[in-house]
Design a protein around this nucleic acid. Structure first.
Length: 505
RNA sequence: GGCGGCAUGGCCAAGUGGUAAGGCAGGAGUCUGCAAAACUCUCACCCCCAGUUCAAAUCUGGGUGCCGCCUCCA
């Protein structure tokens, strides 16, 4: 497959470092757990979730690591404001984050290392960097990376060193040799809540205390979990500079091996009215808030209709359009599922989980469609085009399930079982939650099903009596319950909630 | 100021030089007591100017506009 590599500024054929071409080491910068996650985080982790799923679908042996930053100034400050310990605050927000990811149907990474578990590994790395002359301890006990020691510094963000120097906005810090140097270790007083012992005492003290610089944790965790080099390192585009640039500098200086990561991938932002959604701008919509209004599939569809590297504008109209799509898709999928007589478990069992398994299936229009979808995914995860392919199959599904026999004037040669199997397989590959599409039990929850059945029957009777005002009154009654009533061609009448059938008479 | 990105129908959005995918919304029709659902049909010459080419939304140059990074940030 091809992916856009920020490191070289272009699309490249993906080929893992593993000589056998099988193992893939993938690291994604995880959240700093100081607050609830917002839609921007959802975009980031859904994007890499799709990449993870697709690499596995291509049968790579993927090890996906996503860290948790649980030591950071924002966490410390927030904890102080709230009068709780940084550890408790971080844990609480981590749990919240995990809930959000689960609700969004984002797969768990294979490992989720936390920064605080790797302090000693960071200290080792920093010591090595000092020994190699790539870092130095300042009189106050802090340690800085010596940017001048890394000749190719700036290669990821394409920032010429001279340029950075001339525009350095960083205030002159007497502890630094150069304004560009960045902290690997920040000295703090022992009285500080989150402090670890270090080998670098402040002047006049016998022992040093401090905490890690932000960038160091990722280098250390990568080193500890993966070793010296990895295949893919991903995260939000705002991390390119300085975070990822500094990670590269540290890691490559530490191990002497380059590239630290062969591919660097970055997702675009979620914007609100044209401006980046961020905590600092205060214009964010938390995932929890969004999930109150839209289901996970709606949010995923909204995000996946945009290419991951492009900015995507958040607004309720766009989410509403996505929801309309989801309801229509639900309707078609359930029509087909009902026609085939499958329950959710049976549906999940027929999901095609790998590209080779897909290729081994007998030919059908929708199998071909799925292959095309995969081809689009191989073009740097072109999910908008992939969804367009899915929509073709969705059309076939409707046509076949409703027995109308044609779509867009062309006879459908697809058979229903194949179209359905391919549709659910495509959705699964893209990380949609089949349960939300097909689980009518959840839709039925809390509904007075008996009353609804009676209303449908009463309306049928009224229609038979040609008592139109009565029939319409009943319909309105059902509509006011937030439900939709549909008269089917076979003479039955069904009632659905959000696209899922809850009753039929 | 430096670096990077983007400008396509009412809205969102794909697009690899050869006469513009898909979604949402809209219009017309079929079906229906009506409605809904479904189906059929329908809706753009791609920011501007110049150039290269038999041929450009797609390449080159120049504009204009918007955004991001350069400071914590997915």
């Amino acid at each position: 497959m091809k992916i856009f590599n920020t490191l070289n500024g272009g699309v490249e054929e993906f080929s893992p470092l593993d000589p056998a071409g099988k193992q893939v080491r993938m690291y994604v910068c995880g959240p700093t757990v100081y607050d609830d996650a917002h839609l921007g985080h959802a975009r980031c982790y859904i994007t890499w979730d799709v990449l993870y799923r697709f690499l596995k679908f291509l049968e790579y042996d993927v090890k996906y690591v996503r860290n948790v930053t649980d030591v950071d100034d924002k966490i410390l400050n927030r904890a102080k404001e709230r009068g709780e310990t940084p550890t408790a605050l971080a844990e609480r927000n981590y749990v919240s984050f995990a809930e959000d990811m689960s609700a969004l149907n984002v797969l768990s990474p294979d490992e989720e290392p936390r920064a605080t578990q790797y302090i000693s590994h960071m200290l080792d790395g920093i010591s090595t960097l000092i020994a190699k002359g790539a870092a130095y301890a300042a009189p106050d006990g802090s340690v800085y990376f010596r940017v001048s020691a890394k000749k190719d510094y700036g290669k990821l963000s394409q920032k010429p060193l001279d340029d950075l120097k001339s525009v350095a906005r960083v205030e002159a810090d007497p502890n630094k040799e150069s304004p560009l140097d960045f902290a690997l270790w920040k000295a703090v007083p022992l009285s500080d809540a989150n402090a670890w012992a270090s080998p670098w005492p402040a002047t006049g003290e016998s022992k040093g205390w401090g905490r890690p610089g932000w960038h160091m944790e990722c280098s250390a965790m990568n080193h500890a979990v993966f070793g010296e080099q990895i295949d893919i390192h991903a995260g939000g585009a705002d991390l390119i500079f300085p975070h990822h640039e500094n990670e590269i500098a540290q890691s490559e200086a530490w191990t002497g091996h380059a590239p630290f990561s062969k591919y660097w991938m970055h997702n675009g932002f979620v914007n609100v009215s044209g401006h980046k959604m961020s905590k600092s701008l205060g214009n964010f919509a938390t995932i929890k808030t969004l999930l109150e209004r839209y289901d996970a599939n709606t949010i995923r569809y909204f995000l996946l209709t945009n290419h991951y590297r492009m900015p995507v504008d958040f607004n309720d109209e766009a989410l509403q359009a996505a929801e309309n799509w989801v309801v229509k898709a639900k309707r078609a999928l359930n029509e087909a599922r009902t026609a085939l007589g499958l329950d959710l478990t049976a549906v999940q069992q027929q999901v095609c989980a790998s590209f080779s398994a897909l290729q081994a299936l007998p030919h059908s229009v929708d199998k071909q469609n799925f292959v095309w979808l995969c081809n689009e995914m191989m073009e740097d995860l072109n999910t908008p085009k992939a969804l367009a392919k899915f929509n073709d199959t969705l059309g076939h599904l409707r046509a076949a399930a409703l027995n109308s026999g044609s779509i867009a004037g062309t006879p459908v040669v697809a058979d229903l079982p194949s179209a359905f199997q391919m549709a659910v397989s495509m959705l699964t590959l893209l990380g949609f939650d089949l349960g939300l599409f097909l689980n009518e039990a959840s839709a039925k929850a809390d509904l007075p099903l008996d009353d609804i059945q009676q209303l449908i029957a009463a309306r049928k009777q009224a229609k038979a009596d040609k008592n139109w005002p009565q029939a319409d009154a009943i319909r309105n009654q059902i509509t006011e319950m937030g439900l939709k009533i549909l008269d089917n061609k076979d003479g039955t009448t069904s009632v659905e909630k959000d696209g899922l059938e809850v009753a039929r008479v």
